[in-house]
């Protein structure tokens, strides 16, 4: 599903060049539940942004769903994000002037699904999250856990192949965190690849595979459930 080979990424801030990713090689298979761990500054969020086509890499090869990603137009990237990917953010990133249902339905607006149909689908997804009664509430009327569940519903509504979650539990208390993690596991079990960026050990240990990042390189990969045991760090591109 995802294959990275020798990915480099630097940020230029003023006169300083900050080399964030220093050659990442990684293979994530379809249906995996993977976490990317690392302390702040390790490059984990940058990696997720590159995976999610929110940012572009400087060097290396990125193959997503059998398609090589390189210097594509914004419009094409937007279409791929819309069709293939779902995002869950630490700060939820719901649009404040839209209610829960409208927020969930928004990705379908960009797929030109009719208003009626996308709203009824949104209600359906909110129902799955146990938030049907909250469909017409504005984001500021919802608790953190509820907001995150709305965001997950929004990520799910396009039936993506991959869910990318950036510190999904970062702004939540531990009980709610576990709820959200259960939800993500459930989503994973339906066959969707889920990639979670976190700095919390217990969250990472709820995933199948932990990729430890340190200073822009993969330090180690821990297989929690002994799945993908044979997968090594380096995977030849021509498979």
């Amino acid at each position: 599903m995802i294959r990275l080979q020798n990915i480099h990424k630097s940020y230029i801030t003023g006169t300083n060049k900050l080399h964030v990713l220093k050659g990442i090689d990684l293979h994530i298979k379809e249906g995996e539940l993977v976490s990317i761990m690392g302390s702040s500054g390790s490059g984990k969020s940058t990696l997720l942004n590159i995976l999610g086509l929110l940012d572009n890499h400087d060097e290396g090869v990125y193959v997503l769903n059998n398609e090589e990603i390189k210097s594509m137009s914004e419009t094409k990237a937007a279409k791929l994000r819309n069709n293939l990917l779902g995002f869950v953010f630490q700060s939820f990133n719901l649009i404040s002037f839209k209610n829960a249902m409208e927020n969930v339905a928004l990705p379908l607006y960009y797929q030109k699904v009719s208003r009626k149909k996308r709203n009824s689908l949104a209600i359906e997804y909110l129902d799955k999250m146990g938030l049907k009664e909250w469909a017409h509430h504005m984001p500021n009327e919802l608790s953190g856990g509820q907001k995150q569940r709305v965001a997950i519903a929004r990520a799910m509504i396009t039936q993506p192949k991959i869910i990318l979650a950036d510190e999904p539990t970062g702004a939540l208390d531990s009980a709610t965190s576990i709820e959200v993690m259960d939800l993500l596991r459930e989503i994973n079990q339906s066959g969707i690849t889920v990639i979670i960026v976190t700095h919390e050990n217990d969250i990472a240990h709820m995933t199948d595979r932990i990729i430890n990042l340190k200073d822009g390189v993969i330090e180690s990969i821990v297989e929690n459930n002994k799945i993908n045991h044979t997968e090594s760090v380096k995977i030849p591109l021509q498979e």
């Binding site: 999610g52 929110l54 914004e74 419009t75 937007a78 279409k79 994000r81 819309n82 069709n83 995002f87 990133n93 719901l94 649009i95 404040s96 928004l106 990705p107 960009y110 797929q111 929004r154 396009t158």
Partner: peptide, 15 residues
């Protein structure tokens, strides 16, 4: 920020 959200969930620059 709203524009960022819209783009993340699939809005093209044109839209």
């Amino acid at each position: 920020k709203e524009i960022g959200i819209r783009k993340a969930i699939g809005a093209s620059p044109g839209s």
